[in-house]
Amino acid sequence: MPIERSYRDEIGREREYEMILILTPDVPATRLKEIINRIIETIEKKNEGRVLLLETWGKRKLAYPIKKRREGIYYYWRIIGHGSMVSDIEKYLRMSEFVLRFFALRLEDNVDPASRPSDVTPEVLKQAADLEYVSSRGRKEEEPVAQESETREEAAEKAPETAEKSAEETTEASSEGSDNKEE
């Protein structure tokens, strides 16, 4: 059969994703602009999609070092578009030395784009690409959460966690795959 068509490919229907992008804290302003604009272009032009939400979380402490960095610049996106959108973005980001992590989660298939109005303004997109703005967004070092650690630690040691595989992740592109044991 030459043509395979699933409900996912229904005409006029799109997929909705959320993504977290983490960039190195030392990304130069020009490269930052390039990366953000390229992602938006990939969504809008190449995949006829839209950015539904873009939050610039800014600089945050990483829970474990990635590429020797202890901090990263975080972005949270919600987007809709064609199914190839995320892999297109991923392909591009994989080449960048300033990307610490790219994580995408498929929220829904078969979305009617009309049902997803976006309140993202050009200003929001512009700010996300602007290093000065991005740098002003960082949040202070998070306080380690107080834990009743002894109890929990002790308890957990007696019954090791069961590893459950979560299969929903569509893409967990990470530029390194071996940092599981760090820190």
């Binding site: 610490l100 979560s166 929903e168 967990e172 820190e183």
Partner: peptide, 27 residues
């Protein structure tokens, strides 16, 4: 230990694993 039901524990496990992937929680 926590008293969480099976369904919510499953959701928690998934969430914690995702959180680790984006370095919001440690491995």
């Amino acid at each position: 230990i926590t008293g969480t039901c099976a369904r919510h524990q499953r959701e928690l496990t998934t969430a914690i694993k995702r959180s680790r992937m984006v370095a919001l929680m440690p491995f």
